[in-house]
Design a binder for these strands. Structure first.
Lengths: 213, 213
DNA sequence: TAGATTGTTAATCGATTAACAATC
DNA sequence: TAGATTGTTAATCGATTAACAATC
């Protein structure tokens, strides 16, 4: 039974727990204590127990956590057994790389379509999907009802494309444009990636470490 | 004159400030108050003033901040006028997309080399650079002394590749593998991207919003 | 039972927000 | 000068850590 609201800090740690537990399972771990997990992940044991207790009692006093059970529970919380239909908008270099690089099915999604406006890209196949002309998007959405979309369009097209997709029923965006997508509609979910900001942060780190040069 | 230590929360906001100020400048803004900026960015005016004051007094009472000056100051803090030499390790789909999609020069870096082990990729040109054989990495590093590296290798090769690069003098990593790079060496900087975790977070959002279905 | 480790409450720490004196 | 808005201190809020009783 989940508590009322989960803080964003906790949510951001969940995928990482899930990943580590998967590795532990692969390596034959059956049980693990919060202390041992904390050492492996670079967290405190307290934080781990607090985090898990947001969602229920997954452990057993005197024993610890069953790795496989715990991983499954976190998977449920993350909704990873779903196959939410997702489409890619913008199948250029980045869109193509995203679509081929990630295992959508193990992360709660199913890539069911890809769209672009560039005639040189339309008709090509990526990740087993034939890229369609963006002009056919309305019809496709009416029929296949994708719930999520990957935005790999040029930054200038980000906002307009998102609004259009919302009107077609899309509820969640994975945004790779350099535009800060913040939607007014409150039932729309946005995950901004901002690779540029990430690289900029790396620059800050270098600048700070070697500032006296 | 910068204060002793800047919290990570503040640092993570800096690239976003820089981006917004750039847009404002493009749109002809000469001055802006913390209140006006807070409305545009979805922050509080207090937070903005606190953040900027970590680094000095960039504003003027009764006036606000000069957009262009403030942007330049933040650019300096981020080290964006540098051209830190950077190399790409792994020039497959993702590596290629990263290299071509981002403007390294405006973010404090200069992409000076790309490497792969795949004979089909070696010799091809991406972002104006010819992909070299990874076997020539040691020699290249000795000569060109790259300070930063983009890791787009398979997850299993992440740790080993990083250690090798450190031995060649690389100080900073932009890590796109699914491996949690945490380096023992304390003078090494790591920025983990974890696209998979980002997508998983999106799944959580959908799962939470539509959990009663 | 004794030992281990959780679940949970209390204490601490840090980050955000509010308030206001300083000053342009 | 009066109005505006910063820089900065104080108050609040939230997240992390510590402590320990519950219990397997």
């Amino acid at each position: 039974m989940s508590k009322n609201t989960i803080s964003n800090s906790v949510i951001r740690r969940l995928p990482r727990y899930y990943r580590f537990l998967g590795e532990l399972e692969t390596n034959g771990y059956v049980r693990i204590s919060s202390r041992e997990l904390s050492e492996k992940m670079g967290l405190t044991a307290s934080q781990i127990r607090q985090d898990f207790n947001c969602f229920g009692e997954f452990g057993q006093q005197g024993y610890g956590y069953n790795v496989s059970d715990l991983r499954e529970e976190i998977g449920k919380i993350l909704g990873l057994s779903r196959q939410t239909p997702m489409i890619l908008i913008g199948a250029g270099n980045l869109g193509k790389a995203i679509a081929t690089h990630l295992d959508f099915n193990s992360k709660g999604f199913s890539l069911i379509g890809a769209f672009d406006v560039n005639p040189e890209i339309i008709g090509k196949s990526i990740a087993g999907i034939t890229v369609m002309d963006t002009s056919g998007l309305a019809e496709f959405c009416a029929e296949k009802k994708p719930v999520a979309a990957i935005l790999c369009v040029p930054t200038s097209a980000a906002s307009g494309t998102a609004e259009m997709l919302i009107s077609y029923g899309v509820k969640a965006f994975w945004n790779f444009t350099h535009y800060d997508l913040r939607i007014g509609h409150k039932d729309i979910i946005v995950e901004n990636v901002h690779l540029g900001d990430s690289l900029t942060t790396l620059s800050y780190g270098l600048n700070t470490m070697y500032e006296n040069k």
